[in-house]
Design a protein around this nucleic acid. Structure first.
Lengths: 207, 207
DNA sequence: CTTGACACATTAACACCGTTAACTACATTT
DNA sequence: AAATGTAGTTAACGGTGTTAATGTGTCAAG
């Protein structure tokens, strides 16, 4: 048993090493500009070895995608204890924006990066993870509406608009492309104001 | 003179053909998944011919990028005649969201797609185009603040937040990745509500 | 009219990419 | 000891962006 256990551990370790190397490269260079050979070189294995552990490059992407969503989910979980749904919404916005700021590469990978998704099952699976987070948001919005803390409206659409508001901030901050538009020194102010305006906006949606 | 003129015309025509073919392919398949050989095949020329007209694949991307910004700029221009700055802001939001909805591929190319930008000059030039649109937004916000129609605050940051709000909607709508989260039938409602909530949000920013 | 120069387009090639097939070494089981 | 299975390798295929070398035809000068 000891030997097979050790082997299993080694296998798992290599899987981890591949994922870590791939994540670093994806976040540095982007999905398309990282090659399997680069990943292989970083872990000092032959490129084809990776195919023993992952079906293809896409499978690596999806594994990282899943891990990233679990990380975000973990940050969101404690907020379930916040009793007031409006406070909870605010807190979710804060956690979301903080996550994007602290993990810009991961945020990019989760919500912006385009990876080729061929099979419909994979596609469905990809939504599932984001969907779980979205369900929590929807539930909170619904609760707030029921308690008359939020103007009554279509729950799904309202939730989507809440999400899109924070996503707008996050997406522009995460990509350099758009950051040169404002002074770099204002970065901290911007992040703070972002959240302040978000919470203020939520208040505007009250009945 | 007539001959050289004809030649110049032919040269320009081929440049156009390359750009058109490239745009179609970029929007269909994305930047990385379109090859120079594909573009060449579509215009029935040898792949290397393209290099006579454009330095490399990146140069094509930037040319399209510029054209797209000119298109958006053209849609924005008429709004200069709207006297009330708040009304103008609302109109700009509407035009922006409409542009994104009508030209999702172009929007992607302009604000989301990641193309490798190596030289710093190219990078700077890339900002410049977006910057020009952003300057107009900033001027409008500033005017609104001066006329006490908008709460006094940092102009740049406020402008950025206005932009990020509409970008959030646009970015999520443009990419399928996030659209499965709400019912497809609600699409039209969503677009309408998007704009409504945006204008409503602007009102919240009044003094 | 011929010759040289020039512009445009092409073919051939290089180094890289994702991925597969075939193969080697080694451990385990029979 | 032979057979089976596992983990990793090398070699190869068809594709990529890009460059160098090579036509090919059109013009100006001798």
């Amino acid at each position: 048993m000891g030997i097979t256990a050790r082997k299993a551990k080694e296998k798992e370790a290599l899987t981890r090493a591949i994922l870590d190397a791939a994540r670093e490269l994806f976040l540095e260079q982007g999905y398309d500009r990282t090659s399997m050979r680069m990943i292989a070189q970083r872990i000092a294995y032959s490129p084809t070895t990776i195919y023993i552990y992952f079906k293809d490059k896409d499978a690596i992407f999806h594994a990282l995608h899943t891990e990233a969503f679990q990380l975000l989910g973990g940050r969101m979980a404690p907020l379930a204890h916040v009793a007031d749904p409006m406070e909870r919404l605010t807190a979710m916005g804060r956690v979301y924006l903080e996550f994007a700021e602290q993990n810009p590469g991961l945020y990019d990978l989760m919500f912006i990066m385009k990876a080729p998704v061929q099979s419909l099952e994979e596609k469905h699976h990809l939504w599932e993870e984001g969907d779980r987070v979205f369900q929590v948001l929807k539930a909170t919005v619904e609760e707030a509406m029921k308690k008359k803390l939020l103007r009554k409206s279509d729950v799904e659409i309202t939730s989507f608009l809440v999400w899109s508001t924070v996503h707008g901030r996050a997406a522009l901050l995460v990509r350099d492309r758009c950051f040169k538009v404002i002074d770099e020194a204002k970065h901290d102010t911007l992040v703070a104001d972002s959240l302040a305006i978000f919470t203020n906006w939520l208040k505007c949606l009250r009945p």
